[in-house]
Structure formats: C-alpha cells, structure tokens
C-alpha cells in the first residue's frame, strides 16, 4: 500500500501533551518537516524554552537542550559557537521570549548569531494558567488582568517582529499564522527560509507564529481560530519584516 502521509521523521513517537486545539502541534510538525526537507535533522541542535513547549526536547527527533526561562538564545549562542557547522534553533513562547528573555533575544539578533528562533505568540502565559503576557491584547482578560488589559496600566502589546527588524544582525524576520491550511503552508515556507538564512551564514532569523490557546482564552478551538483572525492579526500583521535576499 502506498503511504500518502505520515508523521514527520523530525518528530519522535512521544505523544504531544498540548491541549486540544492548541496550535503548538502544527508548528512542531512544520519545523520537523523543514529540518527533514533540508536534510539537516542529524546536524541540528534545538533549544526548548520554559513554558508550554518546555517538553519540546522530547518531541523533536534531534539533539536538544532545555534552557532556563528566556535564556534559550544565549544557550543557542554557546552551542552555535562550539558547533558552527550545525543547525541551531530555539523554540520559545511569548512569556519566554517577549518578557523574561528580551535581553537574550535582542542581543542574539544584535550579534547576528546564525541561529533560528521559532517564536510562538498566543498572547498569554499558557503553562502557568493564563496570565497576562507582554503580547496580551488591550481589553483581553487574563488571570492577572481580570478586567482586561489596559494601556494605562500595562502599556500596549509588544510587537516583536517590528522591534527585531530594526536590528542589523537580524536577517530574516517574518510573522505567520497557522489558523488555516493556506497560512500553515505560508508558515512552513517562512520557517524554511529562516533555516536557509542560517545555513547560508547570513545571520539571525526568526519566525513569529500567531497561535491559539483555547484553554486559557476560554474558547473552543474553532472560536479560538476566529478570535485570532479577528483580534490578533489586525494588531500583529502577517508578513515579512526583514529579508536579506
């Protein structure tokens, strides 16, 4: 019988722990497929964050480090400087990258580290049960902004791609979404380009993926995708923010 579709060899057989409707699984699959299609899986070292995707080291079928909260880009820097011929990536959420880890991500980009970052923006802290993130939208209710985030109290949400695109060492920056098959295909293309940026030695690359968190948003998976389209995409426009080509 002909096999038309199977789990990517870039993923282990370990069942994912993510909540129903969460888009982490899709992004894991896309990253794994890209590493396989580029033929670099055996030459790849990944770095997992602290947050919902902390267990990513059990899922990617390549050598992995688990970093402390926010420090994945520094850990990846150490790995890449020792193994410059290898492919090194970090996989980080918005609490990890956009809050506690801003110093590390900004300076990894600023040094032009030849690493690739997959940044999951779901506008909330998932693992700890739905607290406000720097990416939480104005008016969005979380357990630490129960009346909705206010600009006066907490400022406006941080746009990571726009910020990092101002840094010379960042050579490929793109924001994508996986809310529908067309966007998932575009996301995969961006992830491939980000890894190619590293393989060609150009500098730092990052793909931000707008993602859903049905559990902590209090919506079902389908409603979550609608909420992402109606609320996140208008504030976080999809598209390429930096391209060395």
């Amino acid at each position: 019988m002909e096999i038309l579709y199977q789990r990517s060899k870039g993923l282990t057989d370990t069942p994912l722990h993510y909540c129903p409707g969460c888009t982490h699984g899709i992004v894991h699959k896309l990253v794994a497929e890209c590493l396989c299609e580029l033929g670099v899986l055996g030459d790849t070292i990944g770095v997992a964050p602290v947050g919902c995707s902390v267990l990513a080291y059990n899922y990617f079928n390549c050598d992995m480090h688990e970093a402390s909260h926010g420090r994945a880009p520094a850990v990846a820097t150490g790995i890449k400087r020792v193994q410059p011929e290898k492919v090194v990536f970090t996989y980080q959420g918005d609490g990890d990258l956009a809050s506690i880890g801003t110093n590390e991500i900004v300076h990894a980009a600023h040094r032009g580290e030849k690493i690739t970052t997959i940044f999951i923006n779901n506008a909330i802290y998932g693992m700890t049960g739905g607290q406000m993130a720097p990416t939480t939208l104005i008016g969005q209710k979380t357990t630490t902004s129960q009346s909705g985030r206010s600009e006066e109290h907490s400022g406006k949400p941080l746009r990571v791609c726009e910020m990092l695109a101002t840094i010379d060492g960042a050579k490929y920056i793109e924001r994508v979404s996986v809310d529908k098959p067309l966007n998932a295909r575009r996301a995969k293309r961006a992830i491939l380009r980000a890894f190619e940026t590293q393989l060609e030695g150009k500098g730092f690359s990052l793909v931000e993926v707008l993602s859903t968190c049905p559990t902590n948003w209090g919506l079902d998976p389908s409603e979550s995708l609608d909420w992402l389209r109606e609320n996140m995409i208008p504030y976080y426009p999809l598209g390429n923010y930096k391209n060395w080509e």
């Binding site: 970093a67 150490g78 590390e104």
Partner: peptide, 11 residues
C-alpha cells in the same frame, strides 16, 4: 546571565 547560559550551551 547570558554568559553562564552560553557556557551551559557550549559545555
């Protein structure tokens, strides 16, 4: 903090 985490990666 960055330096010790780079050591973690390098080691």
């Amino acid at each position: 903090i960055g330096a010790i985490n780079m050591v973690y990666g390098a080691s």
